[in-house]
Amino acid sequence: MIKYGILVFPGSNCDHDAFYAVTKNMGNDAVFLWHKNTDLEDSDVIILPGGFSYGDYLRTGSIARFSPIMNSVIDFARKGGIVVGICNGFQILLEAGLLPGVMLKNESLKFICKDVYLKVENKNTIFTNSISKDVLKIPIAHAEGNYFTDEKTLNELIENNQIVFKYSSPQGEISEEFNPNGSLHNIAGLINKEGNVLGMMPHPERSCEPLLGNTDGSFIFESIQKSLTTVRG
């Protein structure tokens, strides 16, 4: 059974949601990992959950990134461990340098909570290998999801197929009209060059059961499961 380690920072508020999704909805094992500790407790996958770590004061993710646990997560990632940052978790990964780029305030300057459609740009990753369709419906809930980076980095992201999800129409059309926050190239999620760290603004843990209106988030956890079981043989 796969064991997820879910980080808990002061101000994390999707930690329990992620826990519920990977255990109850997906049937995996999970533990909470307190930010002041350094032990990852033999987790196979680390999730940095959504929320407002340290109240988003100063800058989203900028304080959480210095938590003791983050040194362990950075080591884990450098060694090829699987790391997923969702929403605030994505912002922390950017601050920690595990993913390139920065997050700006949404173009509307407002928090936005709604279902969005994501065109899957790369199905050849640890996180997307089991996705059976081209477009996913997953909610966003953030005030700072407007991804930005310099041109050189952007070109690298494109060359290396690191852009995994883009905001799109239900049919997969990508244009400004379907960009909820002004994100560069409609980027909603990306991986590092090595392919073991994913950051995404939408919340897959909120879309893993029919009762909540959709189940497309479960594809991501299924993909991780498949990757790990394949590796382990």
Binding site: C14, H16, G50, F111, I112, C113, E205, L211
Partner: peptide
Amino acid sequence: QQYDSMVQTNTVLGPGCDSAVIRIK
């Protein structure tokens, strides 16, 4: 849309209908 109506993953019916419905896990 400015409110996070989904956090805690219990929202069966969010804003927009007659009443909101929250499941008890």
